[in-house]
Computed example of a mutant assay.
Amino acid sequence: MNRFVQIRLIPVIAVGGALCMAGLLWPESEYQRPLTVALNIWPGTENLVLACDAGNTREQRINTVEMSWPTAVMGAFRKRVVDAAVVTLDEMIRLEADGAKPRAILVLGVSKGSDAIMGHAGMESMQSLRGRRVGVEIRSSGEHLLWKALAASGMSVKDVQMVPLNLAETEDAYDEHELDAVVTADPWRLRLRDKGAVTLFDSARSGLEFCRVLVVREEVIRVYPNELKSLVSECLRLSAQLEQSDSPGLDAALRREGFTLKQWRESLQAFHMPDAAENRRLLRPGKGGLEEYVTEMVRTMLKEGMLHRQVNVKGLFIPNFLEEGS
């Protein structure tokens, strides 16, 4: 290579080296992936699944990750594998106690019987379970429901044999007569009922205690404001559509839930989907909303040993993504 060519190459090499160095030193964006939402199967989350699909555009990307049981969803959120998750209020409290910093931005549904304790034919009440084996998912809303049911019957967890069981396993465990009762939720609750299972206790008279909320990690709110606003808006719009027999997303919902159309319609009677106005009321800080409700739940969970430390409920609920007048 002659000297003239060598001289001509010096600027090229210098520029190339500078670009390589810049590539190595340039700070990577903290969030490269789409907004990722974890959820488990429940009829009230079907509008969220459809909303995530509707929210995917060139500017916005939203993914859902379906998990078969609540503690898997909580684990994914806690380990920062996902950015958002659908959880019950007691599960949100547990996540906050673990330092995961969940912030509720939407109430998806209030359980009015969708969560239940199901026993075999011949059982008449929770008293029938004294000394018997009950399958329940530990550290989830199922455990909270079992505690509530036992307390209402003058019993405690010491009066039954708690057998750890994932929510998705409750139907098979019941079918195989491995347990005397299972703590479950729709769609498994409804399918078990149609097989002859007896409802020993359910969430019908539990107020707001077993509602499910969409939570996001605190820092995610700053990173995905457009995606979150779009997601909330679409969820509220699609909630009413899913109640219609000709809804374009109904066939997919029936497949995911393993429901017939008749079962789907029955499942809708077992929970309530708040609209935008009710969401604003529930998420608003102070009295009359979920903040006041959760404050009492924290006291109870601490007293009963279901929570390992105090939780400050201030700031857990954020109504910012609910459009006024929607």
Rank of each mutant, 00 (worst) to 15 (best):
20 C>N: 05
177 H>P: 00
271 F>M: 09
36 T>M: 12
6 Q>L: 15
296 E>H: 11
97 A>W: 06
227 E>A: 04
289 G>E: 01
123 M>Q: 09
72 A>V: 08
243 E>D: 12
215 V>S: 05
127 Q>P: 01
15 V>M: 08
214 L>A: 09
299 R>L: 06
205 R>W: 02
74 M>V: 02
15 V>H: 03
317 F>G: 05
318 I>E: 15
317 F>L: 10
223 V>L: 10
27 P>Q: 10
39 L>N: 02
240 A>N: 10
139 R>K: 07
301 M>K: 07
318 I>H: 15
231 L>W: 14
296 E>S: 11
172 D>M: 13
134 V>A: 08
234 E>C: 08
91 E>V: 08
230 S>E: 15
284 R>L: 12
204 A>T: 12
228 L>E: 14
247 S>V: 03
136 V>M: 01
218 E>P: 08
45 T>E: 04
30 E>H: 07
155 M>G: 02
70 P>S: 07
297 M>R: 03
20 C>P: 10
218 E>A: 10
289 G>I: 03
39 L>P: 00
305 G>N: 08
240 A>I: 06
156 S>W: 03
195 K>A: 12
259 F>Q: 07
187 P>A: 09
90 D>S: 13
99 G>K: 00
53 D>P: 06
40 N>Y: 03
164 P>N: 13
148 K>N: 02
260 T>R: 06
293 Y>R: 15
1 M>S: 15
186 D>T: 15
83 D>Y: 07
97 A>L: 09
195 K>E: 14
47 N>R: 09
312 N>C: 11
102 P>D: 05
62 I>C: 08
84 A>E: 08
148 K>R: 15
40 N>S: 06
88 T>N: 01
275 D>V: 05
284 R>M: 14
318 I>P: 04
313 V>S: 10
44 G>P: 05
14 A>M: 14
141 S>W: 00
205 R>Q: 14
271 F>E: 06
215 V>L: 04
122 G>Q: 06
59 E>A: 06
71 T>S: 13
111 S>R: 01
206 S>V: 11
55 G>T: 14
47 N>W: 01
31 Y>I: 12
232 V>Q: 06
18 A>N: 03
19 L>S: 05
199 T>V: 09
130 R>E: 10
38 A>Q: 01
153 S>C: 12
24 L>G: 12
298 V>P: 00
175 D>A: 15
106 L>Y: 04
230 S>P: 12
19 L>D: 04
71 T>N: 03
306 M>H: 14
165 L>E: 05
270 A>S: 14
7 I>M: 14
281 R>V: 03
8 R>Q: 10
168 A>F: 13
136 V>H: 00
296 E>I: 05
326 S>W: 10
81 V>W: 12
279 N>I: 11
289 G>V: 06
18 A>P: 07
289 G>D: 02
265 R>Q: 15
300 T>E: 11
229 K>V: 03
123 M>R: 08
206 S>Y: 01
246 D>E: 08
306 M>K: 10
180 D>K: 09
4 F>R: 14
315 G>A: 11
106 L>Q: 05
262 K>D: 14
186 D>P: 11
177 H>L: 12
284 R>I: 03
289 G>A: 09
116 A>D: 12
220 V>L: 04
299 R>N: 13
228 L>W: 04
